[in-house]
């Protein structure tokens, strides 16, 4: 073996076989190997439902009350604009259709979660009845009314996505 060959072999022997990449590759690998989180859309649906339930409940409560000093919209106009009863019914139907697409286990988990959320919502409404003149809560009702429209769009979209996945 020549001197050059010996030096080459020594140099080869001296090369590290293990080289750490310049950056952490794990996050991208993890993102590619992890399955999509099952039910994330369902929990968004549940959260949307809670917001809508609170919003509708607050609006219903707000409309059922005597006129107060702070009133963002005329009550009649508000009720007519949002057509709350029809909206609630439509939303329930939409949610029922989406829930029907779930697996039994997911459906049971969602129903249980929704029951808990609805109970919490009712507790909030009950507390509001104790302090009906709270201007901050009225503002919340108005804010929720605006949010309601956005949530309805979200529920419809999620339902559509679930239908497409299945």
């Amino acid at each position: 073996m020549t001197d050059a060959e010996q030096r080459l072999d020594q140099a080869i022997e001296g090369l590290p076989r293990s080289v750490r990449p310049g950056r952490d590759l794990w996050p991208e690998i993890e993102a590619r190997i992890m399955p999509p989180v099952r039910g994330s859309g369902y929990w968004a649906l549940a959260a949307g439902w809670l917001l809508t339930a609170v919003g509708i409940g607050l609006l219903g409560w707000r409309l059922s009350m005597a006129p107060v000093e702070v009133s963002p919209w005329p009550d009649g106009a508000l009720a007519a604009e949002f057509n709350l009863d029809a909206t609630r019914l439509e939303l329930r139907n939409e949610l029922d259709r989406a829930v029907a697409l779930l697996s039994p286990a997911d459906r049971a988990a969602l129903v249980a979660e929704l029951d808990g959320l609805r109970a919490a919502s009712e507790a909030v409404l009950a507390a509001l009845r104790e302090a009906p003149a709270d201007a901050l809560l009225q503002e919340l009702a108005a804010s929720n009314a605006r949010r309601e429209l956005a949530v309805m769009r979200q529920v419809t979209q999620l339902s559509h996505e679930i239908s497409q996945r299945t």
Binding site: P16, R17, S18, V19, R20, P21, L25, W26
Partner: peptide, 8 residues
């Protein structure tokens, strides 16, 4: 094993 794989 990332070091070996990346090195390769």
């Amino acid at each position: 094993h990332v070091g070996q794989v990346y090195g390769l």
